[in-house]
């Protein structure tokens, strides 16, 4: 998998908990590097090992840490790109949720080798959705939960989110349920189609 994913976890640990924690993770997870390069491939198991070590060090469950990583991806200034690319999904939170189905293909266009889950959005009502994750790996549901929670703040929408499981033709898929309460809860953050596009 692309180092982009490993690096996200590394930056999360460094930015939120400090350099020392990341150094401990590197030692405990027996990672061969201190720094991941975004554009180089690395083994998948590094990611699991690092997440396990980080959770142990923080005395939190991997699910909790994964959710915080999702929130971090959207809210931290170092990850502004992620937020911006997600905001391309639509002008409202509902449009954004529906656009999750395009994320996989969009990312493929930009980075053909980056493996991300395929999202399928089930619409139950105007305010109720399920985002089904189709991926060979488990554990991304919590990251998505964190992302969706932070994006709701970004759009100024009040939502309730929950991670569950769905059984489909013998497979267990992760599902994030989305319930909208108030679309214009707060004003949300600004977004322009061009980064820094405030030229007069």
């Amino acid at each position: 998998m692309y180092g982009l994913v490993h690096r996200a976890l590394q930056c999360f640990a460094q930015d939120i908990y400090g350099e020392d924690i990341w150094e401990k993770v590197v030692v405990e997870a027996e990672l061969p590097f201190h720094e991941y390069e975004a554009m180089l491939p690395y083994p998948d198991h590094h990611l699991d090992d690092a997440l396990t070590s980080l959770s142990n060090l923080l005395e939190r469950s991997p699910a909790q840490v994964a959710e915080d990583v999702g929130t971090y991806l959207v809210t931290h200034e170092r990850m502004e790109t992620v937020r911006r690319l997600l905001r391309f999904g639509g002008t409202t939170y509902v449009e954004f949720i529906l656009s999750l189905e395009d994320v996989h293909d969009r990312v493929k266009l930009a980075l053909p080798d980056l493996e991300l889950p395929r999202f399928e959005v089930e619409v139950h009502s105007e305010t109720s959705f399920s985002v089904v994750l189709d991926w060979s790996r488990q554990g991304f549901g919590e990251v998505l939960l964190g992302v969706l929670r932070a994006m709701a703040d970004d759009y100024g929408t009040l939502v309730m989110l929950e991670v569950g499981r769905s059984f489909r033709s013998g497979e267990v898929l992760e599902v994030v349920k989305v319930e909208l309460f108030e679309v214009d809860f707060t004003t949300g953050r600004e977004f322009g189609l061009i980064a820094g596009g405030t030229a007069s």
């Binding site: 975004a38 554009m39 790109t81 930009a110």
Partner: peptide, 14 residues
């Protein structure tokens, strides 16, 4: 525009 931005980010990283 999405692609331009995503590609620029990837190019910067490279």
């Amino acid at each position: 525009l999405y692609l331009i931005e995503a590609k620029s980010v990837a190019l910067e990283e490279s």
